[in-house]
Simulated scan of single mutants.
Amino acid sequence: MSDNKTHFGYQTVDSDKKQEMVADVFHSVAAKYDVMNDLMSFGIHRLWKRFTIDMSGVRPGDKVLDLAGGTGDLTKKFAKIVGPSGGVVLADINSSMLNVGRDRLTDQGYVGNIEYVQANAECLPFEDNSFDVITIAFGLRNVTDKDKALRSMARVLKPGGRLLVLEFSKPTNPLMSKAYDLYSFTALPFMGKLVTNDADSYKYLAESIRMHPDQETLKSMMENAGLVRCSFHNMTSGVVALHRGIKP
């Protein structure tokens, strides 16, 4: 695919248009995003995220970047762990998602060690070697230039710091793969229509998952971005994978 073209779901679009199209999707679904996450994953997304936190090795005093952090699920847990001597930056490219996250966490009393930053993963507005841990959960597949974003994340990690990418991936079981396809392309848009009155955004989400690199490809991309000891852990038969890499 040429440099000035990219995928938006199954469509081929101009690279400079994708960011805006993805933004429209998340402006549309932001208010009901958490409800839909619970419905779509039958609540299992909470277990995937808990496993990510366990694998992150976050400790009191750490500086954490929760990228594409949206409504703040991970940020909330990290803020508790790092405590007053640490800090969490909740960053999202989408202002609607960021506002929902900030309002939600502020209402729940999470103030003091959380910052909110509107940021593009491809060119993060942070100094080199800033973070002990970076997580990006269900966000990388929406980024236009994933290689550039991974290099940007590696740059702002401290030496010895860890990047964790939680993302939908390629099911390892053929039966699961068939069932998952059927569910994604029929049930998801239907639920999207019912809950958010927006079937098209959930059709895009299903398609974007299919266009995302598989487990081994993403692992190689992380290595190419300069990370070492890269590995992945499949969950729910590979429907979701957690990739982990360390900055040397």
Rank of each mutant, 00 (worst) to 15 (best):
R104F: 05
D198N: 15
Y116K: 01
G109Q: 08
A179W: 10
A137I: 01
V143F: 07
Q215A: 14
L182C: 14
R210S: 14
I246C: 09
S96D: 10
R102I: 12
V13Y: 05
L163A: 10
D38Y: 11
S56P: 02
N94R: 04
D181M: 13
P84F: 15
K76V: 05
Y180V: 05
S28V: 01
Y180H: 10
T144V: 11
L67H: 00
G192K: 00
D16T: 11
D147T: 12
H27P: 01
V195Y: 04
V88Q: 02
E216H: 12
M97H: 06
D92V: 06
Q19D: 12
K178M: 15
G161P: 04
K17I: 12
A149V: 04
R162S: 13
S237Y: 13
L90P: 00
A206R: 00
Q215I: 09
K17M: 13
Q108Y: 06
C230S: 05
V22T: 01
G87I: 09
E127K: 06
V100R: 09
L218I: 08
R155T: 09
S208C: 06
K80H: 15
I209S: 08
N224F: 04
N37R: 07
R141T: 07
N129I: 10
T186A: 11
S201P: 00
P189M: 06
F185L: 03
K18L: 09
G101D: 02
S56Y: 11
M36Y: 10
F185N: 05
L188M: 13
M1N: 05
T106K: 13
E115T: 12
G83K: 07
V88W: 02
V89E: 02
L188S: 09
L98W: 06
G112T: 07
S169A: 14
G43D: 06
V117W: 02
D128A: 13
V22W: 03
C123S: 15
L166E: 04
V165W: 02
T236M: 11
V133R: 03
G139D: 00
A30S: 08
P248A: 15
M97N: 05
P174D: 10
L105V: 02
T52D: 07
I134V: 15
A154M: 10
D103H: 14
K32A: 13
S237W: 10
A241K: 01
N99A: 15
D24R: 14
V64A: 08
V89T: 11
M221R: 11
S220I: 13
G192R: 00
V25K: 00
L205M: 12
D198R: 00
S41I: 08
S152K: 00
P213H: 10
N113A: 12
T106M: 13
P248R: 13
V22S: 02
C123L: 14
N4G: 09
G192I: 00
F8A: 09
F190H: 04
T135P: 03
L150C: 08
T236Q: 02
L67M: 11
K146F: 08
P125F: 07
Y110F: 15
N94H: 04
D3G: 15
S237G: 11
S169R: 01
N37Y: 04
T12V: 14
N4D: 14
G245I: 12
G9C: 10
L150H: 07
V165H: 03
G57H: 09
D128G: 06
N94W: 06
L227M: 09
A199C: 01
R155H: 09
Y33R: 07
Y202G: 12
M97G: 07
L205A: 12
C123E: 15
F26T: 05
V117L: 04
K193R: 11
M1D: 06
V25C: 07
